[in-house]
Design a protein around this nucleic acid. Structure first.
Lengths: 122, 122
DNA sequence: CACATATGATTACACCTGTAGTCGGAGAGC
DNA sequence: GCTCTCCGACTACAGGTGTAATCATATGTG
């Protein structure tokens, strides 16, 4: 169940993770206008997401209300794990090390990390 | 330049990042046998990777030797950034925090992180 | 030189994705 | 009640991806 969510579909999911349930048009209204999508396109996305089992819909009068079936955190979890598996040998630590080395973390980021590590050690 | 590398293509790139230049058949011999790919399939991948500009080939007698044009670290960089952009608002720190919370880092991982943070702070 | 072989080039084909358009039925207006 | 409209369902279509097969050509072999 719950097949992979494509890039474009993700934009729709993000809307519904932020606020649900919504009708198709409500979703369309909340999609980043920069996408410049037709309502039809969003209907298609909703249909595919339903088919993939990551959304549910219930009738409200003569339209549908859509709501997510998978939590954003689960999705984030899955995608992060995929990246780790594909590029970092399945271990999170090398990714963290890589990020630290390549990402010009701000002082605030480092402080945050420091606090995190301190907590992890306790 | 250098369009996106697909999942299957990545398997080919990984081989060439580990060892290059190689002929098509050498690549095939080094692909994880679990993939169970025909030589044809690997030729196709090589062709597409050439077209995408991420590989180069030079003639060696009547065959080609393939070598990567993009560094693995650049690819890793790009993919990590994509994940961060799509799911973590473009900032690395939240990803690290998320990893720390959800990944049951080992004591060794934590020590490594600790050393990293210590270094970053200095 | 004619033929079997090895290789790269070209072509195939189904499924996914991005991006819609069209069809058909349920209410809303005359 | 007949017609217009709004909405979901179904269909479309090009480009990417996974997974090859076929065609053409250069090469070594007898």
């Amino acid at each position: 169940m719950s097949e992979r969510i494509s890039e474009a579909e993700l934009a729709v999911m993000e809307v519904l993770w932020r606020e649900a349930p919504l009708t198709a048009l409500d979703v369309a209204a909340r999609i980043d206008p920069a996408r410049d999508w037709s309502d039809r396109t969003i209907k298609t996305m909703l249909g595919r997401l339903l088919a993939k089992g990551v959304l549910a819909h219930e009738e409200e009068g003569r339209r549908y209300l859509y709501r997510p079936l998978v939590a954003r955190s689960d999705y984030v979890s899955g995608e992060s794990q995929r990246l780790i598996d594909r590029l970092f040998g399945g271990r999170a630590a090398p990714l963290v090390a890589w990020l630290a080395e390549n990402h010009d973390l701000s002082a605030a980021d480092i402080a945050e990390l420091d606090a995190l590590v301190r907590e992890l050690k306790s």
